Amino acid sequence: MFGLAYFKWEEIWSPVFLAIMLLITAAYLVLTGPVHDRLHKGKPVTAGRKALFIVGMTVLYAAQGGPVELLGHIMFSFHMVSMALSYLIAPPLLMLGLPDWIWQKLAERLSRSPLSRLRFLTHPIVAAVVFNGLFSLYHFPAIHDYVMLHFAIHRLYYAVLFIAAILMWWTLVKPLPDRSEVHGLKQMGFIFLNMVLLTPACGLIIFAPDPLYATYSDPAVWAQAMGYCVSGDPGMLLSRFGGPEFFGYLEPAIDQQVGGIIMKFIQEIIFASMLAYVFYNWYKQENREDDELSGDEAKVNLT
């Protein structure tokens, strides 16, 4: 499917990355299972939280090490699926999967380290601007093609973007509720801000009349970029396939538009769902406070 049959098993499934992800998941299960009582004298981590973390790791692996990652070097639409999985879906799942005491210990360690000077990055507006700014900057054609052609910069940029995604999600997931000052209407405003900030980049991609990225339209550039995820001489890719159009079910310009639509659609669904959830909780809290106030007034009148 989608030309995966032309590649080796290790090129599709990235066994080294898979092993790393399995080791991290195993370490998590040990920390939240057999040795939990030694590290934290509190309630055990629920099966639901563990499931969220495992699903998050699976999503992240699929996006950055599985077939989606390889297809993301062939078709721009799959690249956008990978980006959505990596930065809009995996981070909140992983954050929700970590128990409060782990976040507390991490926060205490960071507060005593030089990284504490970067605490301003957790401010909701700063976090939203940084994440969406980095995401949009990455999809400027010249920057995107440069990053895709330089492996070390590619990995570094993705790592920084992942950290920025966690900082952005911090305001919504609230792993340490006692440290969060953003609730109700402020959270809803934060969600709207994120939805607006990503729109220009998606709009540029969706409405561009021609292909923007040489990585997906120039065979020589494509082969060089593919050299980081498949073995052998990139020249062999050209002689064997001729270019990305060999695999493409869509023309480059249409594939590009589909990618932009996919990214915006996934973002809208996720943030609209979060908006509905936050609004419901805010409305319920407001009604509870009104009922309590009415009850107090009734007691005063009776006395």
Rank of each mutant, 00 (worst) to 15 (best):
T32S: 10
L106A: 15
A19H: 05
S77I: 03
L94G: 04
K8W: 04
S111I: 06
I24G: 00
L98E: 00
Y61K: 05
L70F: 10
A84W: 11
R109D: 09
G97N: 00
Y28C: 01
Y28R: 00
T46F: 04
K8M: 07
G72Q: 14
G72P: 15
P34I: 08
V59W: 11
G33I: 11
T25K: 02
A90L: 05
L18T: 00
A47W: 11
S77G: 06
L22T: 11
V45T: 15
M21R: 03
L110G: 02
P92T: 00
P92G: 03
I89L: 14
G3V: 01
P34R: 09
Y61G: 07
A90N: 02
M1K: 08
V81M: 14
V16F: 14
R109S: 09
G42D: 11
E108V: 13
I54S: 07
A51G: 13
E69F: 15
G56Y: 12
L52W: 13
L93D: 04
Y61D: 05
L93G: 04
A90M: 00
H79P: 07
K8N: 02
G97D: 01
Y87K: 05
L70Q: 12
L4D: 01
F78C: 07
F76K: 05
R38H: 09
L85T: 04
G42I: 09
L88Q: 12
T58M: 13
I12Y: 10
T46H: 08
W103E: 01
R49A: 14
P91E: 04
V30Y: 11
M21E: 07
L88C: 08
Y61F: 15
A62N: 03
V68P: 06
L88E: 03
L52A: 13
L18Y: 03
L93E: 07
L29P: 07
V81L: 15
G56M: 12
P99H: 00
H73R: 15
V16H: 10
Y28D: 00
M21F: 12
A51H: 04
W13K: 08
A90W: 02
L22R: 02
L52V: 05
T25F: 05
A62G: 06
T46G: 15
V59S: 09
R49I: 06
K50F: 09
I74E: 08
S82A: 14
P99L: 00
G72I: 12
A63M: 06
T32Q: 11
F2P: 04
R49Y: 04
I74T: 13
I54C: 08
Q104N: 07
I24A: 15
L71G: 08
W103A: 05
I54H: 03
F78E: 06
L110R: 12
R112A: 14
R38G: 14
A47P: 01
L88Y: 13
M57Y: 04
G65R: 02
A51P: 02
Q104I: 03
P91S: 09
S86I: 04
E10L: 07
F53V: 03
L52I: 03
H36S: 13
V59I: 15
T58W: 06
L110I: 15
Q64I: 04
P91V: 03
A19C: 10
Y87W: 13
V68Y: 10
F2E: 13
S113D: 12
